[in-house]
């Protein structure tokens, strides 16, 4: 196909200038983009209000697609149930799976209790979730793994709150807007979560790999005590997540830990609950201040 003849500037000075201006503007646009990109990589929260407003606008439609997705999941489950042994099969399987997770969690709670009782008579009260919601969407075309939920500041959600499904941890609130929030999923490559083995006190970090699996990195190196099939639960270190919530099952052993599969898949859950930060004081203490030097006033004290 030949290019349309109208696209040749020829000897017309006006057309030549317009071509030149086009290139100039496009280059300027690219430079503006580069500048904005540098700013948002350096200070990720600068453009948060813009993104938040966009998320607020998009989340009502997301509610509808989430409902449709839940319906689709259910239909699929029923179909596979018939394929195996009838529609209740899928239901039972899910129940057994949750029971297995609960068993592992109970084991974790037991060890936790034993340890606490050994320390002191500390009472552990039940955590009330801040709000329940649906996952309304995700960054499906990007290399990052974010999800969006249809609740925000107006529902009491703040940055850093853990997000759980009925099966286990899903992620952590990263940004909040008026009526929507962005959640960093555990599968994102920048997500790190302190965990421990449910059956004992082996502590590790669960780091997202960016391809759907998490890498379990043991803190105490040496002989790798892990076994395939080990369940990992949150350890409560860092202060964000309450201890004893299911996270992942070990899939493969490596020299410094292993590769694990997540227990709570965001795409398979209907409802999630946003829980308060477990120990706000610990989070505050671990944060780095903007200026980590003592001021004159502090020195004078």
């Amino acid at each position: 196909m030949a290019p349309p003849s109208s696209r040749r500037s020829g000897f017309s000075k006006k057309q030549q200038y317009s071509v030149f201006t086009g290139y100039l503007l496009a280059t300027l646009g690219a430079l503006v983009g580069l500048g904005l990109l540098a700013i948002s990589l350096w200070q990720p929260s600068v453009f948060q209000p813009l993104r938040g407003a966009a998320g607020d606008a998009a989340s009502p439609v997301g509610q509808a697609t989430a409902t449709a997705r839940a319906g689709g999941n259910n239909t699929w489950d029923t179909l596979t149930g018939y394929w195996n042994a009838g529609s209740q099969n899928a239901e039972l399987r899910r129940e057994v799976e949750i029971a297995r997770i609960r068993l592992a969690e109970a084991q974790a709670v037991e060890t936790e209790n034993r340890r606490l009782k050994a320390l002191l008579g500390l009472a552990d009260e039940a955590v009330e979730p801040i709000v329940s919601a649906r996952l309304v969407g995700s960054s499906a075309s990007s290399a990052r793994r974010f999800a969006y939920i249809g609740v925000g500041k107006s529902d009491g959600v703040t940055v850093g709150m853990p997000v759980h499904s009925e099966r286990g941890v899903i992620g952590r609130v990263l940004e909040t807007a008026r009526a929507s929030s962005r959640v960093l999923l555990l599968t994102d490559s920048e997500s790190v979560l302190p965990v421990r083995r449910a059956s004992d006190q082996t502590v590790a970090f669960a780091e997202g790999r960016g391809d759907g699996l998490v890498r379990i990195r043991l803190i105490n190196l040496g002989l790798n005590p892990l076994e395939i099939g080990d369940v990992f639960v949150t350890s409560g270190a860092g202060g964000y997540y309450r201890p004893g919530v299911a996270v992942a099952v070990l899939n493969e052993k490596t020299s410094d830990g292993g590769i694990a599969r997540l227990i709570a898949e965001p795409s398979a859950t209907n409802y999630i609950s946003v829980e308060p930060i477990y120990e706000p004081l610990a989070v505050e203490a671990s944060g780095v201040r903007e200026q980590d030097e003592l001021t004159e006033a502090e020195l004078g004290e």
Binding site: G62, S138, Y148, T187
Partner: peptide, 13 residues
């Protein structure tokens, strides 16, 4: 793409 839930890897072009 925002309304598709991709938790494992980027699936939507």
């Amino acid at each position: 793409p925002i309304w598709v839930l991709a938790d494992v890897m980027p699936v939507v072009p």
